[in-house]
């Protein structure tokens, strides 16, 4: 029980929930902190709504980036896809080079304002860490293991499922962790094109020189990033404890 009470993930999650629930009632607090402001509390959207929108955008874009990124990494580490390896690496690196703001600016005239341009920008931006670490993780599976697996009559699909992916999992999840955390921060920018995220109070706050608004967006975003990072850390430790991923030597 004491272990659970000291669990930082538990406390960070509780803090985030409490923040989302209590934010609408925090007007007196922000009024006291920033006495000069006519509107000390962002009331266009509730904090919980913005948090949900933020999570939806990050979840959808990261989910798509995981499917695409891990899929691409698997493809280029097969003999059939080996030729595309440098091409994929280049495309992914370019995706990372474009600032998300630039992607948003290009995407808006094509698909309009709202969720989708943000989704695409975050998807592209989140691909690189996933593809890179997934390729590295799959590459790190010793060739002798594949050889042994093949020699005992395992199909290529079974080798991928039973040997390569489980052994590469810590690296892959490490890449997903970086990608998701980056996207939590980048998703705030998405509010400039009309996606409803916790970036909205920040953007409006910057525009209107309202530091209270900025805090009301920035604090939940930071807390969300901490919660997700801790959760991924937890997942990785659980993986490592359950399996012993060092090749015997």
């Amino acid at each position: 029980m004491t272990m659970r009470l000291r669990d930082p993930l538990l406390w960070a999650s509780l803090a985030l929930t409490a923040l989302a629930a209590l934010m609408p009632h925090s007007k007196p607090l922000f009024a006291a902190l920033f006495p000069g402001l006519a509107r000390p509390l962002f009331e266009l959207d509730g904090c919980a709504d913005l948090l949900a929108g933020h999570l939806l955008l990050v979840g959808a874009s990261s989910g798509a980036a995981i499917l695409l990124g891990v899929g691409a990494a698997i493809f280029v580490t097969r003999p059939a896809g080996a030729e595309f390896r440098s091409l994929v690496a280049t495309i992914v690196a370019i995706g990372q080079t474009f600032p998300p703001v630039a992607v948003l600016a290009v995407a808006v005239p094509v698909i309009g304002f709202g969720f989708y341009p943000a989704f695409i920008a975050l998807l592209l931006y989140g691909l690189l860490p996933i593809v890179d670490t997934a390729i590295a993780g799959l590459d790190a599976v010793p060739a002798t293991l594949r050889d042994a697996a093949r020699g005992m009559g395992m199909s290529e699909g079974a080798i991928l499922r039973k040997v390569e992916l489980p052994l590469a999992a810590p690296a892959i999840i490490g890449g997903i962790r970086i990608s998701v955390i980056i996207n939590v921060g980048t998703a705030t920018v998405a509010s400039t094109v009309g996606a409803r995220t916790l970036g909205l109070p920040i953007i409006i706050g910057l525009d209107a020189a309202n530091p209270a608004y900025i805090l009301q967006g920035a604090i939940p975003v930071a807390l969300l990033a901490i919660v997700l990072d801790l959760a991924f850390g937890r997942l990785l430790t659980a993986l490592q404890r359950r399996r012993h991923s060092r090749p015997g030597g």
Binding site: P142, T144, L145, G151, P166, H244
Partner: peptide
């Protein structure tokens, strides 16, 4: 049966 010098046991 196939046995190799590097053994190739699945570490997980």
């Amino acid at each position: 049966g196939y046995v190799i010098q590097s053994i190739g046991l699945f570490p997980h």
